[in-house]
């Protein structure tokens, strides 16, 4: 009798973790500096860098949309995977429930980001 071999879903989560880790390693520090420090404190960049018209135009451009979606979704999947696997290290025996919470929150964030980007329009 031929038995269907059950394939692991781990490579999917690992790929998302890796993609998010790479993206945050490449752009993370500068993104935090721009959105969290330079713009709020008025350093270096023009005062209207993140003004409503600028950001709306950016989020309506397909390239900008893709960038925003990739940053938010992949950062969340990267963090969810890393936090899930660290639970064991801090003495929490993580099971299906913890997996559902970690990856579920990343999924929720991904859906919300997609919804907002679609609501903003093209």
């Amino acid at each position: 009798m031929k038995q269907e071999r059950k394939r692991s879903n781990a490579p999917i989560f690992w790929a998302l973790f890796g993609a998010g880790g790479m993206l945050s390693a490449l752009f993370g520090p500068m993104l935090v500096f721009i959105t969290g420090l330079a713009v709020p404190l008025g350093l270096l960049l023009p005062a209207d860098t993140m003004s409503y018209p600028h950001m709306l135009a950016f989020a309506r451009n397909w390239l900008g949309k893709g960038f925003i979606f990739a940053i938010i979704a992949l950062f969340l999947w990267h963090a969810a995977h890393r936090i899930f696997h660290s639970l064991h290290d801090i003495g929490i025996h993580a099971g299906t429930g913890a997996k559902l919470i970690c990856y579920g929150l990343a999924m929720l964030g991904t859906v919300l980001a997609a919804y907002a980007l679609l609501a903003i329009g093209f």
Partner: peptide, 29 residues
């Protein structure tokens, strides 16, 4: 491994901003 907590929190801040952007100018500002 702990840097993931900051990555998650930062993504959450950006996601909030994106949702505010979709809600209009007052919410964004």
């Amino acid at each position: 491994e702990g840097t993931a907590l900051f990555v998650a929190a930062y993504a959450g801040i950006l996601l909030t901003g994106l949702l505010r952007l979709a809600q209009g100018e007052a919410a964004w500002n």
